[in-house]
Nucleic acid binder design. Structure first.
Lengths: 228, 228
DNA sequence: GGCTATTATGACAATTTTATGAAAAAACCA
DNA sequence: TGGTTTTTTCATAAAATTGTCATAATAGCC
């Protein structure tokens, strides 16, 4: 499984070039030429990063960024903006709106890739199929197994996904709705309170070695995975 | 059964020489002169290793490597690149993209063979015709026989291939689709659920000594061969 | 302490997924 | 070709998972 990157750029040649470069470097690329297409591509499965042309017709680049920051589920997707040379003002504005980095046209593929890698590394330090280890609680995405001090733990698929999500997004509260979106997937109609039940099942599953204290209740807000 | 090695090299003389050397050393060699041919050769049956000329016209050597890393089924095929003397930068780049080793032109057949053997040994510690032994369950690829504590086990050809695949790829979940791809072969149209039946027959066949616990169901994901 | 809002928990029925046996289809072999 | 083995499919059984609800427990607040 490789990372998905969404390219938002109105000029087809540049779009194609970006697409080519990204795929050459082992990323999955999806493209959008205008505002609407971009919004459509931003739904499930969420891209891991968005390459956003600032100079979309109608100034909609900035709108896309804003929209992304408004929505809970897209807020944390990193954005690299593409600006024209000399538009210093734009850069400031972009970083203000929440872009994580920018590249100036024209740019070299090498530079672009370096920035993409840097941003992804910063946002998602955990590689996609590496064992995640939190205080002896280990989750191995490859063998699809959870162990506590080397003895395997038994849990259902949903609890596994939930734990996986928690372990890759620690130290952060998530509301029940957010958890449903991230772990169950968007447009599933499930009762909020169902999350409680799965939290309990997850806790029970990992409680043998006392790891249930990692899954913490934040009253009034949701749940959090934390070592503290 | 011998290892298959794909040679990707545009200069016919070198290609032929490589082919000759490899076959002399007991490998099956297939060749490709350009990007398209290489991609075509990369399908079933998958080569066990790719000898890749870095300096293909149009710089497509690196493209081939990248393409291979993108696809699930070719990702784990090791790559040895062939570089011209002094292209140090290329080596770095190549290793970055995922090449496992490189040889510098001109090279001696001896050196080449040594590197090939080293890479294959590292990637596939189980030799092709060495008995694989997992907790007393032994599979001998040469005699095509499976024994448990030295008494022979009876199973069909498909179960044998399935077990062979599992034993050479332990501790990893495979979906039914992936198993079909790896054990049955790509572009065979077989029902997903058929895998279940063969899993059951395999379990039954190896269950006499309790080895059926090695073949584990990962609910919602597929199956896994594991000693844990 | 008593009240209220929120979360935890156990149970259950519905659903989904996997296991299994048997039959049909295909491949194989003599 | 006829018989045999193997493979695939299908139907059904068994098992595990899931979402929901009712109720208990708990925390926060006055």
């Amino acid at each position: 499984m490789s990372r998905r990157i969404l390219i938002v750029e109105d000029e087809a040649p540049i779009r194609d070039m970006l697409c080519f470069v990204l795929e050459q470097n082992g990323y999955q690329a999806s493209v959008a030429g205008d505002f609407d297409a971009a919004i459509n591509q931003l739904v499930e499965p969420y891209p891991d990063l968005v390459l956003l042309d600032w100079m979309l017709p109608g100034g909609s680049g900035i709108q896309i960024a804003k929209k992304m920051k408004q929505h809970e589920l897209t807020r944390n997707i990193p954005i690299i903006m593409i600006t024209a040379r000399g538009e210093e003002e734009d850069k400031v504005r972009g970083l203000e709106v929440g872009a994580d980095d920018y590249v100036t046209k024209p740019f070299s593929p090498k530079e672009l890739m370096a920035r993409i890698k840097a941003v992804i590394r910063r946002v998602a330090p955990t590689s996609l199929d590496e064992v995640i280890d939190v205080q002896g609680l280990k989750l191995d995405p490859v063998s699809h197994r959870v162990t506590a001090s080397d003895s395997p733990l038994d849990m259902g698929p949903t609890e596994f996904r939930l734990l996986h999500f928690f372990m890759t997004h620690p130290e952060r509260v998530y509301s029940r709705e957010q958890l449903l979106d991230h772990v169950w997937g968007t447009n599933v109609y499930v009762e909020d309170r169902t999350v409680d039940v799965h939290i309990r099942r997850l806790r029970k599953a990992i409680s043998v070695a006392g790891h249930d204290r990692l899954v913490q209740t934040v009253r009034g807000s949701g749940y959090r995975f934390s070592v503290k």
